[in-house]
Design a protein around this nucleic acid. Structure first.
Length: 151
DNA sequence: GCCAACGTTGGC
DNA sequence: GCCAACGTTGGC
């Protein structure tokens, strides 16, 4: 089973939104980057995903969720009141996808960027590349193990 | 708040 | 197809 990492601003959606409702799936919407979207579309039910908190006080990997529903048209792209509305997306050929995710675990402490950078196994992970803005990325088994070992 | 790095847009 | 201009991301 493939493994992934997804970035989120905790003010938008944090690991605590999952822990607050551990049995409820959360719609992962608003991805507006083609490379990230394509990775979303590759996700399979049950795939596990690291949740990374960005642009906040405590930056780093906060926990794990898993795919509850595979990619479907992101409803936000057709919602004119949504900041993710995309007037160029056609109903019969939706441009953007969403998946549903459910809670798996929350780390007792955030795994910091410094910790991630200290791991040679993570040298090629897009997350730690300078200037990388990719918000959804695949994680190899070796990388997954390395990140989990930092807990 | 700053600013470097990035992805997208649009004129040509 | 090129590339400058622009808006956004995201760590600091």
């Amino acid at each position: 089973m493939a493994k992934w990492l997804a970035k989120t601003e905790p003010s938008e959606c944090s690991i605590d939104d999952f822990t607050n409702k551990p049995d409820k799936a959360i719609v992962w919407e608003g991805v507006r980057n083609y490379q990230a979207r394509n990775f979303l579309r590759d996700m399979k039910t049950g795939d596990e995903i690291f949740i990374y908190h960005s642009s906040c006080k405590y930056i780093g990997v906060a926990g794990i969720v898993k795919v509850a529903r595979e990619a479907y048209p992101d409803p936000a792209q057709f919602d004119e009141t949504s900041p993710y509305f995309d007037g160029k997306s056609a109903k019969d050929n939706p441009r953007w996808s969403a998946v549903d995710m459910v809670f798996v675990s929350k780390f007792p402490q955030i795994i910091t960027l410094d910790q991630l950078r200290s791991m040679p196994e993570l040298e090629y992970l897009a997350l730690v590349q300078k200037g990388s803005r990719l918000s959804v990325m695949p994680v190899s088994d070796a990388e997954w193990k390395a990140i989990k070992s930092l807990q």
